[in-house]
Write a protein that binds this DNA or RNA. Structure first.
Length: 584
RNA sequence: GCGCCAAUAGCUCAGCUGGAUAGAGCAUCGCCCUUCUAAGGCGAGGGUCCGGGGUUCGAAUCCCUGUUGGCGUACCA
């Protein structure tokens, strides 16, 4: 049950009972925990229309509710606040209900089919730090939406169809011109084995890109190769398949290290099949126009404040660009899956691009504007505030980054006073390193740039991934020791102390936390909630010696509270994609 | 040039429909382990919420304006 919604319902009905609009009864967590647990400010808002002092209205509402035994206190405060405190017995009842439910009282949202487009790796180059945010934020949102009952289809949307492919192909051709892929006369079988290795591939793309910058001849050749590939030239097609194959296996390996996976490994190339159809749709509606040899769609609206350039859908060389492949992907998604919504978890810098694509999709009749949304994210910057780079100024590979945080985490694990086997240490190092990365990222609001500082993310104190893991490990350890003494979690009793009450209240926010996080597509809301629960737990833990508590009913109640806290943290950590080490 | 976004404690960041005394973590200073994992907990100091107008009973939050920074601005993705 969502406690805020439940209280809102109670107070709203009091408002309508007293002759005011029900919508005034919104209840929020209190801004003054010293005075109350929840508050409603509706009386303040009602005052003007009712032509009454807010405090009078507030009193009417409270007098309507004061005999409700779910509240230990419901009172007014000037100028018109309604302050609510739950009775301890009611609170304990809610916690027991939560604890007895496999979903911790979190009901599913409406059923919707959603396509989530994230990851967006380029097959020509290895994953680098720039891909981190899309992967972990996208994965968290998928996990969250699934838990809340959505039918989620995640699609990595490979960058495997643009100019980068022409560049790689032309570079390979330049280096190994005798390969059969480049012989137009060749009609034998192409080799089974790729002509290049994964390592070579990662070197080839930057080499080709810089060659194209220097030699316009090479650049022209690459864009010609791109068009030929897109037109289905067999040799290029075969070579391209090899490149894709090499790349996908390396991508899967890197993503799996982050706990990220996709339902669909489709790419721009798969959208390629739909390009003619989309162009047909646009043409039918008279939306295509010529402009400097390219075909464009006018997407500007009269009411736009910002200038909106027309969207190029066919380049002047006849090739597909990412505007048309994104549009074609939307057609593919509609035909194959008919989703209610499409979410794009892509860098903020592509805001304009997605505005154009969604408008074009709307004009073509594929989706309505509100069905497609770009949930952008900010840049990961170094401590200097500029985009994160390695010491020598290059872009850091994701695999390198993960190796480096794992090594740092390993050093901390070795300092631990807890005895661990080699395997346990290795697992813990990996899990802690990844948790540090993920929390360091997702504690920040998605849409903002943030400073990447791995030392801080891995620090032994602070709001870090390791802190959350440590708290969970601690709870598990106590529960295990208690069980060894024959003590098991029991019914949660009315709280005896402020810290115990505060922990209970923090746990009650769970349903609201998840629904807000889903509404806003904001994993930081989940992180905030985890820190608040973990903080309350650690205070409670410090104040109370649980296992040695002489009163057996209090002890089993405390264990019940601990167990519920464990389940709550495990649920939230799971959504964010964080594993908890066996010990640390 | 035009447009989009941001600016909150020394640092890194939260701040949900406009509400009471703007919150965390780090850093600084001072405490708490013979007892369940001290990678923990408690306390103290630290703020012109970028500046200026406005709307409102009430503004970090909404509107206008200025400053600073980031990004985008058709044939890369």
């Amino acid at each position: 049950m969502n406690i805020k919604e439940a209280l809102t319902q109670i107070v709203s009905s009091a408002f309508s009972q007293c002759g005011y609009e029900a919508r005034l009864g919104g209840v929020a967590e209190s801004a003054r925990p010293d005075l109350c647990q929840y508050q409603c400010n509706g009386a303040l808002a009602a005052a003007k229309q009712a032509k009454k002092k807010p405090i009078i209205i507030a009193e009417e509402i409270t007098s309507c509710l004061e005999n409700d035994d779910r509240f230990s206190k419901i009172e007014t405060a000037p100028p018109g606040f309604i302050n609510i405190t739950l009775s301890d017995k009611y609170l304990a009842g809610l916690l027991n209900t939560m604890s007895g439910d496999s979903r911790l009282g979190i009901r599913k949202a409406e059923v919707k089919t959603v396509v989530v487009d994230y990851g967006g790796p380029n097959v020509a180059k290895p994953l680098h730090v720039g891909h981190l945010r899309s992967a972990i934020i996208g994965q968290s949102l998928c996990n969250l939406a699934r838990f809340l009952g959505y039918n989620v289809i995640s699609d990595v949307h490979l960058g495997d169809w643009g100019l980068q492919m022409g560049l790689v192909i032309s570079e390979v051709e330049l280096r190994q011109p005798n390969l059969p892929y480049f012989n137009a006369e060749y009609n034998g079988e192409y080799p089974k084995e790729p002509p290049i290795t994964e390592e070579e591939l990662s070197e080839i793309y930057p080499a080709a890109a810089s060659r194209a910058k220097t030699y316009s001849e090479f650049a022209a050749r690459a864009s010609r190769a791109t068009v030929e590939l897109q037109d289905g030239l067999p040799g290029y097609r075969k070579l391209w398949e090899h490149i894709r194959e090499i790349s996908i296996s390396s991508l899967k390996r890197d993503y799996s290290r982050l706990g990220v996976s996709f339902d669909k490994w489709l790419g721009e190339s798969d959208a390629g099949k739909y390009v003619p159809k989309v162009l047909g749709l646009l043409d039918e509606k008279g939306l295509l126009a010529d402009s400097d040899g390219a075909k464009v769609v006018e997407v500007a609206l009269a009411e736009d404040r910002e200038p909106m350039p027309p969207m190029i859908v066919v380049k002047s060389d006849g090739g597909d660009n990412y505007a048309i492949t994104d549009l074609a992907s939307l057609l593919q998604r509609r035909s194959d899956w008919n989703p209610d919504e499409c979410w794009y978890i892509v860098d903020n810098r592509q805001t304009l691009h997605f505005k154009q694509v969604f408008r074009a999709a709307c004009l073509a009749g594929l989706f309505t504007q509100s069905q497609c949304t770009h949930y952008g994210f900010g840049t990961m910057n170094g401590k200097d505030g500029k985009p994160y780079k390695t010491r020598d100024g290059g872009v850091m590979r994701l695999s390198e980054l993960i190796a480096s945080v794992t090594a740092s985490a390993r050093a901390k694990v070795e300092l631990s006073s807890v005895e661990m086997s080699e395997q346990e240490m290795a697992d813990a190092a990996r899990q802690i390193g990844v948790a540090a990365l993920k929390v360091g990222d997702m504690i920040n609001h998605r849409s903002k740039d943030y400073i990447f500082d791995i030392e801080r993310f891995l620090a032994t104190d602070g709001r870090t991934g390791p802190y959350l893991q440590y708290t969970t490990v601690r709870i598990r350890s106590v529960l295990k020791k208690a069980e060894a003494s024959g003590f098991i979690p029991g019914e949660i009793l009315a709280p005896q102390s402020q810290t115990e009450r505060a922990l209970g209240l923090a746990l009650l926010t769970l349903p609201d936390t998840l629904s807000r996080a889903l509404n806003e597509k904001a994993p930081n809301i989940i992180c905030e909630a985890m820190f608040s629960i973990a903080g309350e737990l650690n205070r409670f833990y410090f104040e109370n010696k649980i296992i040695s508590c002489p009163d057996s009913s209090i002890r089993s109640s405390w264990l019940g509270l601990l167990d519920l806290t464990r389940k709550a943290l495990e649920l939230l950590l799971g959504i964010i994609g964080i594993e908890v080490p066996r010990s640390m």
